[in-house]
Nucleic acid binder design. Sequence first.
DNA 1: CACTAATAGTAGCGACTCGAAACTATTGCA
DNA 2: TGCAATAGTTTCGAGTCGCTACTATTAGTG
Lengths: 183, 183
Amino acid sequence: MTPHQPQRIRALIDRLAKLSEGEDWAADLNPAQMTALNYLSRANRFSRAPSHVSAYSGSTRGTVSQTLRALERKGLVSERKSETDRRSISFELTDAGEALASAEKEIDRVIADLPEETSAALEAGLENLLRQLLGLRGGKAFGLCRTCRHHRRKEDGGYCELLSVDLKPAETTQICHEHEPAQ
Amino acid sequence: MTPHQPQRIRALIDRLAKLSEGEDWAADLNPAQMTALNYLSRANRFSRAPSHVSAYSGSTRGTVSQTLRALERKGLVSERKSETDRRSISFELTDAGEALASAEKEIDRVIADLPEETSAALEAGLENLLRQLLGLRGGKAFGLCRTCRHHRRKEDGGYCELLSVDLKPAETTQICHEHEPAQ
DNA sequence: CACTAATAGTAGCGACTCGAAACTATTGCA
DNA sequence: TGCAATAGTTTCGAGTCGCTACTATTAGTG
C-alpha cells in the first residue's frame, strides 16, 4: 500500500472508462450519446427529460439537446411531450435503442467472467466511492427508486411518497432523478 | 447479483471517470492533456515518447502530437531529443508539470478515506478487469517495471534484461511501455 | 552498399462536439 | 396581472479528433 494508491486507482478508472468508450464508436455513437442512451434505458418515466440527462451527465442543457437530437436522428429515441406541463419533454427508447443499450460490450463480458467475490467487491467499492464523492459535491445520486427514502414497498410493487404514485415491480429498480438515499 | 450487474459496474466506472475529468478543467487541461500529463509523470525514461503516450491513451499519434504541444505551450512539459535515434523525442515534466500531476484531486482524497480493505479490493478488482480486457484486445499493459518478466531485482534497484540497463530503486515502480506480465 | 520498407513525428484539413449566451414558451408565484 | 423561474432550443466560436499526406531517419535485404 504505497502513498500513491489513490492516483493509481484513479488512473485505472480513467483508463478503463477510455477503453469502454472506445467501443461506443463501433455503434456510431460518441461517448456522450452512449451515456445518454444508457441513462435513458435505466431511468424511470419521471426521469427521462433533457434536464435530467443534463444533471446526470454533467453537461449543459444545450449540449444535451444536441445529443438527444442526434440520438433521435439515428432512430434510437423518440420524444413524447408531456400533457401536464407543456414545457417538458420525455424521451423513450425505440426498439433499436433498447437493443443497442442492452447490447453486451466486451467489457461487460469481462466483468461477468470475474469471480463473483471480485465483482461484488468491485461494485461495492465503486458505489461507495461515488456516494462519498457526490456527497462532497452536493450532486444528485440518481440511485435506484427502491433505495430512496420516499419509497414504500407494497405487495405488488411500490409507492413513491414524493410523487404520490404507484410503481410496478420493474419500476422500483430504475433510476430516479429525485432519488435521495434512505435514512 | 442481478443479471445487469456488468452494466451497472460499467456505468459506475464511466460516471466516476466523468466526475474525475470535471476536475481537470479547473487546471485548464482537457482530459486528454491530463491523461498525458499523468502518464508522463509515471512513465520511466524509456517510455516518454509521443508514440508511447499514443499507445497508452488510445488516440492517434497526430492527436497526441497536438496534445503534447499544448502541454508544452503551458509550460508543463519540455521535449528532449534523443541522441541515439534522431527520429525520437522524449518528454519530461517541468517543475510546474510535476506539481500539477502530483496535485491531489478531490477524488483522490475520497479514495484515501476509504477503509483500507475496500480500497485494496477496489484496486485489485480494477487491475484484474484491466488485465483481462487488455488480454482480449492485445493491448499493451503499461505495468510497473518491477512486475515485468524482463525485470531482475538487485540489491540497489533492479536490472532490465530487455534493454540491458541498470535501474534505480525509484525507477522500478514506474510505468514501462515494454511491460510484459511476469510468467 | 544501395534500395526498399518500416518507424517516429508533424502538418493541414474537415467533421464534429461542447459550452456559453441569448432566445422562446410555459408555468409558478405574489 | 405581472414578474420571476423553469424547460428547452438555437446559434456561434473555440477547440478536438482522426485521417491523409508528408518529411526525416533507421532497419532490413539482396
